[in-house]
């Protein structure tokens, strides 16, 4: 696929912008493709709704905003409620299962029509806590995404992680990536689509 539109939504402090940045960096610097990220956030440093929008393509990217996201990673209830309806039919919806209550009505609706969004849930924050710190939940999510869709190469993603953190934090972030990646691989083979 030559063009991917990815939205990552959550609140300030979850590393939402950093996750978008790492995805774009893996694509641009290590996979040598075009990548653009725009971000939206409130004036507060923590706690307010924020999202990052990443486009990855083989062609130059003119319009830098998403038109129809192929992927939404929702790390907050608000992010899920606001952006889940935008996801492209056949697209990927990944939610942080401990922070998002799925909308039962929407699930039924999506299940009944032809425009099915592939839904995956992941306790990314819990996985991160088990690894040592909840701060790497965003990287767990990136690992999960990487296994589910060929947006960026796993090796590119690992390089992006390696080159973006201080030495002392690289190992934990790489572990988080691998943990998410492994969960994604298992989910994909189980094909637990809703």
């Amino acid at each position: 696929m030559s063009r991917w539109e990815v939205k990552i939504a959550g609140f300030g402090g979850q590393g939402i912008i950093l996750a978008g940045y790492l995805l774009g960096k893996a694509a641009a610097v290590y996979d040598r493709r075009h990548a653009t990220m725009v971000q939206s956030y409130g004036p507060e440093a923590r706690g307010s709704a924020c999202n990052s929008q990443v486009i990855i393509a083989d062609e130059p990217i003119y319009y830098p905003y998403l038109t129809e996201p192929d992927v939404l990673i929702a790390m907050s209830q608000e992010g899920y409620a606001r952006f889940a309806p935008e996801v492209k039919p056949g697209g990927l919806l990944i939610v942080e299962q401990d922070l998002v209550t799925l909308d039962a009505a929407r699930l039924r609706e999506e299940g009944s029509g032809g425009d099915i969004v592939r839904l995956y849930t992941l306790p990314a924050t819990k996985i991160a806590e088990e690894l040592g710190h909840r701060i790497v939940a965003n990287i767990v999510m990136l690992g999960f995404l990487c296994a589910l869709a060929p947006i960026v190469s796993p090796s590119g993603m690992r390089e992006a992680v390696r080159s973006s953190f201080p030495k002392s934090a690289i190992e934990l972030n790489l572990m988080a990536f691998e943990a998410g990646y492994e969960r994604g691989r298992l989910s994909r083979s189980a094909d637990d689509r809703v």
């Binding site: 641009a28 075009h34 990220m37 725009v38 830098p64």
Partner: peptide
């Protein structure tokens, strides 16, 4: 502001 803050290759 968009061009200043847009992150790209």
């Amino acid at each position: 502001a968009v061009v200043g803050h847009i992150t790209e290759r």
